[in-house]
Write a protein that binds this DNA or RNA. Structure first.
Lengths: 247, 247
DNA sequence: CAACGGTTACTCGTCGACGAATATACGCCG
DNA sequence: CGGCGTATATTCGTCGACGAGTAACCGTTG
């Protein structure tokens, strides 16, 4: 259950974690986040940043301390974290760490329409991805190793995680590419024929027609049958139109 | 370069891929997507769905064919994909497949504030995550294997990818937990001391003060020094305020 | 057969995301 | 020392995301 956060944007998490150290004004927060690389851990957009600061203030998770004015510049408001803010930070951290949520990487969406491309082109594009990925990984590994020499590992866990995951993606890509280039990938001929002759075997046409909920995923417990299942912990939600009033 | 899409929401990709098969009305599209599991490949929200349909229409990637009216129900518009729409589908697929983009999983954000929790609690929460993850993986693997018996692998690539990635996460978690529980994780004592005595070693205070761009990531080439670097391919963007007019 | 609850099928209003615009300060070159 | 390019620091307006609301239809129970 991804609790309804008063400020949902993950930027807010970063802001809170920055303000735990000491009170700062917005631009200073942003600079600090960039300085210790937090901007890689979530989407950082200047437009959203100030919105988030405003919302955190509105919900009393942070509060203005003083207004500094330098020269004729617009005055900068220094914010400090409140007790509620500290509580939110910890509670949010707990949730994010303990609860696996369905993520939706863009690559997955891309793969879901892979059949729309000619198999040879698909293979080329996947190879290109692998190349780019490997280069990026090599660079980031280097950077990480360099940082590990002066910064405790605890503050770099996310980067280690990131690299592990991308290594796995690279490995998976290599395996897939091996099958595609060797021609051992099942259905490769049909796939190619479809793109070259426009011919789709009856078997596939029929497949498209009926529904069989192919994809595996945790948050759709294959409960296709409309049984009155009593009160099982969670609702699929993806396709339910209204959250129940239990909230 | 993640090309500026006229309709950026990934739901649009799914809609296009559905309409490639045959013209449909919105609800029918949604049903079809759910039927063949596409709703797991991206965020599906009913609210966004109709917005996306409207935008696709507005930008002529799909177009209305006819208006069916049954009984006194609101009439349902049947849409078909246009040539522009087909082109967009293919072009988008190419981009998604070939170009690794920085993703920002929520878990990564969580890890980035892991130090905010007591190490023992963190360990417990990570263990909980691992348990949930393993259960989910086991279920999804089963479902996938079942589907593989009747659906060509090509149409299940995204699920195979997903499982591979989550397997990797589980493995990484296991390794991390081993270090945490055995006590071999470097800095564990300092971490614990900080939470139990509130004492932060001078070494860390100093670390927080200076900026050293710790995180490894491809899209921030550690260019902290304000050198006039001539025209290197890409801009970090995360922290630049204005995209250059080259567009 | 009326009343009710579930399913189908959207519409609407609000809030937040974020690109673009703004404005001052600063450094440097002639 | 005045003009201009760049960095600093923020505001603003628009568009899209999406939860909540609406309404017909359908089955079913008393």
């Amino acid at each position: 259950m991804p609790k309804r956060r008063k400020v949902g944007n993950l930027l807010a998490l970063a802001v809170l974690s920055a303000l735990v150290q000491r009170p700062m004004h917005p631009y200073e927060i942003a600079t600090a986040l960039r300085a210790w690389g937090k901007d890689q851990d979530m989407e950082f957009k200047w437009g959203s940043f100030y919105t988030v600061i405003g919302n955190l203030d509105k919900h009393h998770l942070i509060e203005a301390v003083e207004n500094v004015r330098e020269g004729r510049r617009p005055e900068r408001t220094v914010y400090r974290i409140t007790d509620a803010g500290r509580a939110e930070l910890v509670d949010w951290a707990r949730e994010l760490v303990s609860t696996p949520m369905a993520e939706h990487p863009r690559f997955r969406a891309g793969l879901s329409v892979l059949a729309a491309l000619h198999p040879d082109e698909a293979t080329g594009l996947l190879r290109q991805r692998l190349d780019l990925l490997e280069t990026a990984i090599r660079q980031d590994r280097e950077t990480l190793d360099a940082h590990l020499r002066e910064i405790p590992r605890l503050f770099l866990v996310e980067s280690e995680y990131d690299l592990a995951i991308r290594d796995a993606e690279a490995a998976w890509l290599r395996a897939l590419l091996a099958e595609l280039t060797s021609g051992s990938y099942p259905g490769l001929d049909t796939w190619r024929a479809f793109h070259e002759t426009g011919e789709m075997p009856a078997e596939l046409t029929e497949l498209a027609a009926r529904g069989s909920t192919p994809n595996a995923s945790s948050d759709t417990p294959t409960t296709d049958s409309p049984e009155a299942h009593p009160d099982s912990a969670e609702r699929p939600d993806s396709f339910s139109r209204r959250a129940d009033t239990t909230g």
